[in-house]
Design a protein around this nucleic acid. Structure first.
Length: 113
RNA sequence: UGAGUAAGUCAGACAAUCGCAUGCUGUAACGGCAUGAGGAAAGUCCGAGCUCCUAAGAGCAGGGUGCCGGAUAACAUCCGGUGAAGGCAACUUUAAGGAAAGUGCAACAGAAAUAUACCGCCAGACUAUGUCUGGUAAGGUUGAAAUGGUGAGGUAAGAGCUCACCGGCAGGCUGGUAACAGCUUGGCCAUGUAAACCCCACCUGGAGCAAGACCAAAUAGGGCACAAAAGGCGGCUGCUCGUCGUUGCCCGGUAGGUAGGUCGCAAGAGCACACUGGCGACAGUGCGCCUAGAUAGAUGAUUGUCAGAUACAGAACUCGGCUUAUAGACUUACUCACUUU
RNA sequence: GCGGUCGUGGCGGAAUGGCAGACGCGCACGGUUCAGGUCCGUGUGAGAGAUCGUGAGGGUUCAAAUCCCUCCGACCGCA
């Protein structure tokens, strides 16, 4: 019953960190790496530096919401890790979306319209 | 009106669009309906349920609690009282057993710190303006603390030595379930510290839902030997027993590998209301309700309206408490002061 | 979930309940040297002072860094 488009293995994480590309933006950091699948796998992280559990949950929700709106324009076949930076506290959703969009453009994974 | 004391409540609401999790349902892979974090979910400081550790073991050690009575499944919690401390009061706080069972400690200062005599005071002796002996603890010095306080009698000087009042201790009587309170008789001997060791009374087996049960998958062995015991290793917090599991020896390998699903897991010491008993904590009865259950981990985004604003903060097996954090708003009862009637 | 250690000058790090800041490093000043280093000596918590200071707040005690309670922070271990 596990969802297939979620990263959960330690191996996957370490290989993405070590061999993947990374792009930093104002509110998020993106690690990415090609996989052999026909769909994208994602993970949304917020470390304890960001804040308490309420703030960390909110950060992950904002990133998920932004990813959901951008998902249709993305290339397929990638593993993506989104990491919240501590600047994400008290920021609205549209700003997170903008930041994530520009990060993905830098990583050249976003199809232009 | 102002100042205060105590108890308690709420924790933005509504609407629209998109999106998430679980359950039900239709259709066949997309829809519909319902439900979806807290008063502290937190800290993990206590207590229990539940599960496993063959039995739920023995002794010692260790740990906890500590005025009295009650409530409770249980508690270090709660309720009611007693004593003490604080406040004009409403009221608040309170780890509050034992120091004549024993041991330890009390720095510095001081003569002396639990036993004594430096300066004094008094008496006597002598080699006589001083030295010795004895008595005394009223006065002085030190200190946090110096063997009850004040006054009178008494005496060589003094002293609870005697008396009055106060204080404290012991016995008796009365009231109270008890802590204790009141009265009375004797009588003044005994510093403080037990959140120092300790004594007394009571309680206490361990691990924790990653407990544990089932299903599925994977797994590195080879040679020699082959009866048991002792012994070793591991579990039962520490030690002694006891008990359970495992283990023949050598060589190789020697640091990782795997961890998927179902159950446990949401009907419970449950919640709301009413009545009855009780000062109260709480208990009983009746009636109604079903109210999160994820597994990288579900509640979010945008817009509008309300007079304006949203604190502390996110369930992870479940309950009862405690502690800590908390914007703003509100309710009730009581006390004191002032003004008016 | 369970359970353990620690918090003291600018830094490291001592301290039987009894004068807190031992000791080392650093820093400042002085001496030595033509000059610097080395070496030697003095000083060094805050505050004008009263006083306050051992992560914070309470308590026990005559007296607390030390004993007890409640919080905060940092780190570690086991499953």
């Amino acid at each position: 019953m596990l969802k297939p488009n979620v990263l959960r293995k330690k191996k996957d994480f370490s290989s993405i960190y070590n061999r993947g590309k990374s792009v930093g933006e104002k509110f998020v950091v993106v690690f990415s790496k090609k996989n052999a699948l026909a769909y994208n796998r994602t993970a949304f992280l917020a470390s304890k530096k960001v804040g308490n559990s309420v703030i960390r949950n909110r950060a992950r929700r904002l990133m998920k919401e932004s990813y959901r709106e951008l998902e249709s324009k993305l290339d397929l076949g990638n593993d993506l890790i989104f990491i919240a930076r501590s600047t994400i506290t008290s920021v609205k959703c549209c700003e997170v979306k903008k930041s994530m969009e520009s990060a993905l453009i830098k990583a050249k994974m976003l199809r232009r319209e």
